[in-house]
């Protein structure tokens, strides 16, 4: 899928934000904060670049997208609904028995999901396997992975970072959703990560840092990733946890907490929904 304009992508992201709030409110559980921080990048990737077919989600030669921070599933489900992989009615199955929208994204349950995530630090290795498979196949397809900034505290991320650079995987593309907050607190309090771009650079990756909520910058960064073919590339998106809903923004309480009825009404109003 390509061809959506910047304003169309921005409008898609606004609609997805509404669904994220509704889904977590309906379930009275889930992870709104990290879904709202990642959503602009996800919309740009799906709306601007990702080669995938909503009417044939298992198409062998599709690009892969692996949401490694699999708890931020409301964001991915909202995008999958916008892109037609699932219906908007399916979003009501989030965290409901038998629903395609399992608590954490699951490839066995939901069309368009390429990896069953939910345990942090796994998606980059899996994406590396997808990249190697594409190379052996002689395919031009890419594997895109998104991790959170807290997630890179997992040691296995760095096993994968080293291995992907060693194997010169130019078809492996990583986004880091740098929202600065993890489950218990701000990342700065839990585990300081110091100079994140320097770390990826030192591991042999091509690195770009952007504003992860500026749609033009995101689209340009995705295009830049295509130009990197001899090594893996990472786009580090500086984001705000809970972006777009005032009381959730930069608030650790909304990592894994649902809005109340009253809070939902405020959120929807801020997101331009007329009462």
């Amino acid at each position: 899928m390509t061809g959506m304009s910047i304003s169309e992508l921005e409008e898609m992201a606004r609609k997805c934000r509404i669904e994220i709030c509704k889904m977590t409110h309906r379930a009275q559980a889930g992870h709104p904060g990290g879904s709202l921080s990642e959503i602009d990048i996800l919309c740009a990737l799906y709306g601007h670049r990702l080669r995938a077919r909503s009417d044939d989600p298992d198409w062998d030669d599709r690009d892969r997208f692996i949401l490694s921070k699999g708890h931020a599933s409301p964001g991915m489900y909202a995008v999958l609904a916008e892109m037609g992989f699932i219906s908007h009615a399916d979003l009501e199955s989030y965290r409901v028995k038998g629903g395609v929208c399992q608590g954490h994204v699951d490839m066995k349950w939901c069309p368009g999901v390429d990896f069953s995530a939910g345990s942090l630090g796994m998606g980059l290795s899996y994406g590396m396997g997808c990249s190697i498979a594409a190379n052996i196949d002689g395919s031009k397809r890419n594997a895109y992975v998104m991790v959170g900034d807290g997630e890179i505290q997992e040691g296995s991320i760095w096993e994968a970072a080293m291995a992907a650079a060693h194997h010169e995987l130019g078809n492996l593309k990583l986004f880091i959703d740098c929202n600065g907050i993890q489950n218990d607190d701000f990342c700065e309090a839990q585990m300081r990560m110091f100079d994140i771009p320097a770390k990826w650079n030192a591991f042999g990756w091509a690195v770009k840092v952007i504003d992860g909520h500026n749609m033009s910058e995101i689209v340009s960064a995705i295009d830049w990733m295509d130009t990197v073919t001899d090594k893996p590339a990472v786009v580090i998106g500086m984001t705000v946890k809970g972006k777009g809903v005032s009381f959730m923004e930069n608030n650790p309480a909304f990592h894994g907490a649902a809005p109340s009825d009253e809070q939902l009404a405020i959120a929807l109003s801020e997101l331009g929904v007329n009462a």
Partner: peptide
């Protein structure tokens, strides 16, 4: 060698690289 992947001394990564390959039709 073209179908052998060195994962270095990194077992956690190795198993999930295998998962990615398996999901793409390979038998790791």
């Amino acid at each position: 060698p073209e179908r052998t992947v060195s994962c270095g001394i990194g077992e956690q990564n190795m198993l999930l690289v295998g998962a990615g390959l398996a999901s793409s039709g390979y038998i790791p």
